[in-house]
Amino acid sequence: MTTSTITLNNGVEIPAIGLGVFQTPPEETVAAVATALRTGYRHIDTAAAYGNEKEVGQGIRESGVPREDIFIESKVWISDYGYDETLHAFEKSAAKLGVEQIDLFILHQALPSAFDKTIAAYKALEQLLADGKVRAIGVSNFMPEHLTQLLEQTDVVPAVNQIELHPYFQQKELVALHRKHGITTQAWSPIGGITSYRESAKRSFDEPVILTIGEKHGKSAAQVMLRWHIQNGVQVIPKSTKAHRIAENFDVFDFELTPDEVAQIDALDTGVRGGPEPDVITLENFGKPIPEA
């Protein structure tokens, strides 16, 4: 099975598909990470706010895959924004992961009500990059206005913006802005798992268009959606703790969607966000202390 990589705007390569561990309980994280790496994954995405960085590090060590072959990504939570605070956030994350260098370190959210803290945090990321403590830096859940402000006030263009992205919520304006500035789009909930939690009956896994395409290729709905992202140049981080699903989500490099099939999926956009609106993210509502290592 061949795999694929995406070259970030600073020349660093990131695997096209990684394992996400959002909401993965710490007690399940070790096995999920080790299983994914033994399956062939080489990218693990975690975050300080997930509370499982330590277990990600343990899973990496237990996998038997050399550290230098693994691309580790983590995120700074809003409670640790500010220049010195973010430098310390790196130390906490690196210690929990058990590594000296993090491959991709990003801001977890924009903080519109205190954007000066967001800018200070990103400038700390720039320093970490200059010091060689991280290989690439970026952001997550930034909207066009947040990216525009960031680009005006900082020096390093983010390597990625990790956003909610799946066939039912495609954020086309934001993705176009990414392309304009050479920012890689990274999709969380890439197979629309978040649609399963809505009161609406519309679930991406049940979408007839996707199921029909899957039947043609002998692939599941999840595999079709992941392939759609990859062909669009989007990096994906599907989440699962089940070994067979982890393997299934990785088995997407032996088929290709036709331009018509891609267009059919492109037409499924509803514009309905599943996660929280970015502007509701405030320290008052979402701030929480991130423990020391």
Rank of each mutant, 00 (worst) to 15 (best):
Glu126Gln: 01
Glu126Gly: 03
Gln127Ala: 03
Gln127Val: 09
Gln127Ser: 14
Leu128Ile: 11
Leu128Ser: 05
Leu129Ser: 00
Asp131Phe: 06
Asp131Tyr: 06
Gly132Trp: 02
Gly132Ala: 05
Gly132Asn: 09
Lys133Val: 10
Lys133Phe: 01
Val134Trp: 06
Arg135Cys: 09
Arg135Glu: 00
Ala136Thr: 04
Ala136Trp: 09
Gly138Ile: 04
Gly138Cys: 06
Gly138Pro: 09
Val139Gly: 04
Ser140His: 12
Ser140Thr: 02
Ser140Gln: 11
Asn141Arg: 14
Asn141His: 13
Asn141Gln: 08
Asn141Val: 08
Phe142Val: 13
Phe142Asp: 10
Met143Thr: 11
Met143Gly: 10
Pro144Asn: 13
Pro144Asp: 07
Pro144Gly: 11
Glu145Val: 13
His146Ala: 10
His146Leu: 11
Leu147Trp: 00
Thr148Arg: 13
Thr148Ala: 12
Thr148Val: 12
Gln149Pro: 06
Glu152Gln: 11
Glu152Ile: 00
Gln153Tyr: 03
Gln153Asp: 12
Asp155His: 12
Asp155Pro: 00
Asp155Thr: 14
Val156Ala: 10
Val156Leu: 06
Val156Pro: 04
Pro158Cys: 04
Pro158Gln: 05
Pro158Gly: 09
Val160Thr: 05
Gln162Asn: 05
Glu164Thr: 07
His166Leu: 02
His166Pro: 01
Pro167Phe: 07
Phe169Trp: 00
Gln170Leu: 07
Gln170Phe: 09
Gln170Pro: 07
Gln170Cys: 03
Gln171Ala: 14
Lys172Asp: 15
Lys172Ala: 15
Glu173Cys: 08
Glu173Ser: 12
Glu173Asn: 15
Glu173Val: 12
Leu174Ala: 13
Leu174Ile: 06
Val175Met: 11
Val175Cys: 13
Val175Pro: 04
Val175Ser: 10
Leu177Ile: 05
His178Arg: 09
Arg179Ser: 15
Arg179Met: 10
Arg179Leu: 11
Lys180Thr: 15
Lys180Ala: 13
His181Tyr: 15
His181Ile: 14
His181Gln: 14
His181Thr: 13
Ile183Cys: 05
Thr185Gln: 09
Thr185Ile: 10
Thr185Trp: 10
Thr185Asp: 05
Gln186Gly: 04
Gln186His: 14
Gln186Pro: 06
Trp188Arg: 06
Trp188Phe: 14
Pro190Cys: 12
Pro190Tyr: 09
Ile191Val: 15
Ile191Thr: 03
Ile191Pro: 05
Gly192Pro: 09
Gly192Ile: 07
Gly192Leu: 08
Gly192Cys: 04
Gly193Thr: 06
Gly193Ser: 05
Gly193Glu: 05
Gly193Tyr: 04
Ile194Leu: 15
Ile194Phe: 06
Ile194Cys: 14
Tyr197Ser: 15
Tyr197Arg: 15
Glu199Met: 13
Glu199Cys: 11
Ala201Ile: 12
Ala201Thr: 14
Ala201Val: 13
Lys202Gln: 14
Lys202Leu: 15
Lys202Gly: 09
Lys202Trp: 04
Arg203Pro: 10
Phe205Asn: 13
Phe205Arg: 14
Phe205Met: 14
Asp206Tyr: 02
Asp206Arg: 07
Asp206Gln: 11
Val209Glu: 03
Val209Ala: 02
Ile210Asn: 01
Ile210Gln: 01
Thr212Lys: 02
Thr212Leu: 02
Thr212Pro: 09
Thr212Trp: 01
Ile213Gln: 02
Gly214His: 00
Gly214Thr: 04
Gly214Ile: 02
Lys216Gly: 10
His217Cys: 04
